[in-house]
């Protein structure tokens, strides 16, 4: 498993796309921090950017890589190694490479310019967001057979989670404004990994505003550590569950 991961990392770190992604993130982070003395404002801007870019690049890059390496996967399957080790090895390889890009492009600048609890939260949720979207990429790659369909599905998932989902939630809230929807809202949040990452960052940046909400459940959710623990756990679920499904499918898949 780790052997495969190692060679995939060696392969990906030399790819131009990954280099471009690293440089893009680095450029964004540095531009934001250099152009504005206000660190908090910088973190807000970076949050806005990473909530869009990180999921997009993670899911599209991982899906593309998966399909480009289809014959390589076949070759690996012909070797004395389990399919489980192959898929997990690929996952570890791809995700550590993309995480590396995120760490260099975002975590290091944030640590240098804005080291704070908010900064750390940004790093952690960015990493988890990366992992959950790579996990989703593995799922889309294993359930589709050809590359075009796989990438199409990946893009649709990204579009759904980053834009459509919240639009629907807003619509839903407007339609049922008179009902107490606290529980429903927390459940809805858990259904979208991007929202979970966003809530984690909100809990740092906007805790003053969140505490203004009257409902007891929200008060408890935001005010105690429950919100943070819940969001982190659900992010992990979003990383593990699609991967486990992908594994289940991959074990029975004809190559």
């Amino acid at each position: 498993m780790l052997k495969i991961a190692k060679y995939i990392i060696l392969d990906i770190v030399r790819s131009k796309v990954l280099l471009a992604y690293t440089l893009l993130l680095l450029a964004i982070s540095l531009t934001i921090f250099m152009s504005d003395a206000d660190v908090t404002k910088g973190l807000v801007s970076i949050t806005t950017v990473i909530l869009i870019i990180v999921p997009l690049v993670s899911i599209v890059y991982a899906t593309t890589y998966y399909f480009n390496a289809a014959e390589f996967t076949e070759m690996l399957v012909s070797q004395p190694i389990s399919r489980r080790a192959i898929l997990l090895g690929k996952f570890i390889g791809i995700s550590s490479s993309i995480l590396l890009a995120f760490i260099i492009g975002v975590c290091i600048p944030v640590a240098l310019f804005a080291f704070s609890l908010t900064g750390i939260t940004l790093m952690v949720s960015g990493c988890l967001l990366t992992l959950s979207f790579i996990s989703l990429a593995f799922l889309t790659s294993t359930i589709t057979r050809d590359k075009a369909k796989g990438i199409g599905l990946a893009l649709m998932l990204w579009f759904y989670f980053s834009i459509i989902f919240d639009g629907l939630v807003l619509l839903f809230l407007t339609l049922f404004a008179d009902y107490p929807l606290e529980k429903v809202m927390i459940v809805l949040t858990a259904l979208n990994p991007i929202d979970l990452a966003r809530i984690l960052i909100l809990l740092q940046l906007d805790i003053s505003a969140l505490m203004g909400y009257t409902g007891a459940l929200y008060q408890q959710f935001f005010g105690s550590g429950i919100g943070i623990v819940f969001s982190l756990l659900m992010q992990l679920v979003w990383t593990l569950v699609p991967l486990l499904f992908a594994l289940k499918i991959f074990k029975k898949k004809d190559l």
Partner: peptide, 9 residues
């Protein structure tokens, strides 16, 4: 295999 295809880099 019929067509060998390995990671690009």
């Amino acid at each position: 295999p019929q067509i060998g295809h390995y990671p690009d880099n």
